[in-house]
Simulated scan of single mutants.
Amino acid sequence: MYRVLITGQSGQIGQSITDRIQHQGWDVLFTDIDTLDIANAKQVEAVFKTFKPDVVINAAGYTDVDRAEHDAVAAESVNAYGPYLLAIQCHSIGALLIHFSTEYIFNGRSHCRYVETDTPSPLNVYGRTKLQGEQYIKAYLSHYIIIRTSWVFSEYAQNFVTTMLYLNRSKAPICIVNDQFGCPTYAGDLANLVVDIAKDNQAETGRYQLGDYNFCSDGGDRDRDRDRDSGVSWFDFACAIFEELDKYQPGEQGRNLTAVTSEEYASIATRPKNGILNCHKISPIFRPSDWRRKLRHVIEITMA
């Protein structure tokens, strides 16, 4: 029986994977911090010894970017030391490790989309610890695939979409940064991708090379009419959310929305201005969805 270990089940990527992997006919072990703390060496070793996975999908992560600035030890524990422990155990039994990383490993000063081989230079603790996790995996394991993604949203957990819907109900002013650009990515697309990678690994068809991949959602036809390197800003993303919401609650959705600069917003952590990823490497194998269509899907579920 093909065995798949999934960490971080309760997060939005983890829950999306759960929805899509249960009918594959595999022996799947779903874990979260209550059942497997990936930063606990004894727990990780015990799970690998008893379950002996063929594939490990690491969806666990410390993702609170601002909080990480004051809680660097916890962020490093989950984002760096945890992947190190998983890499060590995967190496010992020959398992494939599929790991999620982020555009925050880059400083955002480039005027082009980031490719997999660009030099990382993180601006904050979150980005630094995610880069450390990548480096540990590459140092101790050769059988891995790292998926760098950005601006993940879904119908699950807390994310930018659910936050905007909550803030809109409060009628309070909503200030959103308009000079940071990226690519919103639907967690369900990431889940479908890792299931496809696991299938490829089982069948040994070799469609996916080992190493790094960038993966973020496509903007669809509307994005093809504009500069592909421009992406969308957080403000653009918020406007799209309220545009979809207006179909269910006609009125002045997002009327309290105001565009501000990064300096005016003054968040705790410094964020990259350009977080746009070039996905040309993976696109011939697996193409992402139009994020606006997936946003429509998420709003529809939320408003049902």
Rank of each mutant, 00 (worst) to 15 (best):
M1S: 13
R3K: 15
R3S: 07
L5E: 02
S10Q: 07
I13M: 15
G14Q: 04
T18N: 11
T18V: 09
D19Q: 06
H23R: 15
G25C: 08
W26N: 08
F30I: 03
T31I: 00
T35P: 03
T35A: 11
K42N: 11
T63G: 08
T63Q: 08
A68C: 04
S77K: 03
Y81V: 09
Y84T: 03
L85K: 00
A87P: 09
I88T: 15
I88V: 15
Q89Y: 04
C90I: 03
L96D: 06
H99P: 04
F100I: 10
E103F: 14
N107I: 02
R109V: 07
H111A: 15
C112E: 03
R113F: 05
V115R: 05
T117E: 11
N124S: 09
V125C: 07
Y126Q: 07
T129Y: 01
T129L: 01
G133R: 03
G133S: 05
S150A: 11
W151V: 13
V152D: 10
A157R: 01
Q158P: 06
Q158G: 10
T163V: 06
T163Y: 02
A172V: 00
A172M: 02
I176L: 03
Q180I: 10
Q180D: 07
F181W: 14
G182K: 03
P184F: 05
D196Q: 07
T205I: 06
D212Q: 02
D229P: 05
S230P: 06
G231N: 08
A240H: 07
I241G: 06
I241T: 11
F242C: 10
E243D: 14
P250M: 00
P250K: 04
Y265S: 14
A269E: 05
H280V: 08
D290P: 08
W291C: 13
K294S: 15
L295C: 13
T302V: 05
M303S: 13
